[in-house]
Write a protein that binds this DNA or RNA. Structure first.
Lengths: 191, 191
DNA sequence: ACAACTTCTTAACCTAGATTAAGTGCTTGC
DNA sequence: GCAAGCACTTAATCTAGGTTAAGAAGTTGT
């Protein structure tokens, strides 16, 4: 239960009372694999923190092709930031890949917490900053690296995910088709 | 001078004293076109706010190819977030494309301001959130759209930039070579 | 225990966009 | 005013990665 408090304490120090208050604002749920906890077209109401299991966020374009935006396993936050912030219908799905225990923090509670515990505004600012830096790097990687290099980078960055998630999702994350990914993997194994 | 106060007031309301304090922490500089205000390998010390003119941030990969991460004109913030946050040498250059007046806010001053005016922590949190959402969208666009679609999206999103910046930089931003961009543009004009 | 589905692979063929190279106007500095 | 660079174009050729299609294993539900 307090994995989330641990996560916060890496960045800001909450007093016991503040921890109490924080815990009173969240909700924990269990989801089975294959559950869609958010659908495209819906308005996203929560920031999700993963206690255990694996989730992914993805969209589907006109051609009925999925594109994975993010994976999240224990200790990671995930959401549809666009929809959550704008309170407009988003175009992301969030799906459970592996049975998961997830902490839900509603937008209203999150904003109340910013006022009641300014340290949490700092926490989420820093979280968002780190996420932005990671997205900038991934963007530049997509512009300048080959699929092979992007795959190698993925492997060294998320070694645990490789064994756990279907490789078609990894292919989608790095931006290639499953067929090409398969071919590329075979080529790499020969070396 | 107060274009930056206007920019802040879109999101949070500062009192006259707070505005005074904020202004005492910033510095304004003029730069000629072609100036590199940040070099790859340096540690980024500032958040930059553009009063006038145009800047761009970009990196250079092994193949000596430039990739544009961002443009910034009046009313936009720009920086090397990775280097600024980690205080490690970055791999971004920031270059002046058109004579510019730029406001500099040092990392130390920015962090002091977070403590002295918590509203500014909120301001930068929201700024960063919006930037993250924009980067996520651009990432998904790069994964799922053709070069032509990305160009059309760029045009409708940044109509002013198209006339003002050399098209090779726009090509780089959307992720194609200048040669292909030229061919694509000719094709689009025929329609 | 079997049908239905999903994941992954292989292979032939295709194409968006890269590369190379050459040429045309421009600015810009001296 | 002219040489040296830029910025852009055009065109031929090339290739990383996509598409289509089919089959092999593995997984899931009943």
């Amino acid at each position: 239960m307090d994995r989330i408090l641990q996560n916060i304490s890496r960045i800001v120090a909450l007093t016991p009372q503040e921890q109490e208050l924080f815990l009173s604002k969240i909700e924990t749920r269990d989801y089975k694999a294959k559950t869609l906890i958010l659908n495209a077209g819906e308005i996203c109401q929560y920031s999700y923190f993963v206690n255990s299991g694996i989730l992914r966020s993805f969209n589907i374009n006109d051609n009925i092709v999925e594109h994975v935006l993010a994976f999240a396993c224990h200790g990671w936050w995930i959401s549809d930031m666009y929809s959550l912030l704008s309170q407009k219908p988003g175009n992301l799905f969030i799906e459970v890949l592996e049975d998961a225990e997830v902490v839900l923090l509603s937008k209203e509670n999150q904003e109340q917490l910013y006022l009641e515990i300014p340290k949490l505004e700092r926490f989420f600012r820093i979280l968002t900053e780190n996420s932005l830096v990671a997205h900038q790097e991934r963007l530049m990687d997509n512009l300048s690296l080959s699929a092979e290099d992007r795959f190698e980078k993925f492997c060294s960055k998320y070694p645990t995910l490789i064994q756990k998630v279907p490789q078609k999702h990894i292919a989608s994350y790095i931006g290639v088709t499953p067929e090409f990914f398969s071919k590329m993997k075979a080529r790499l194994l020969k070396k």
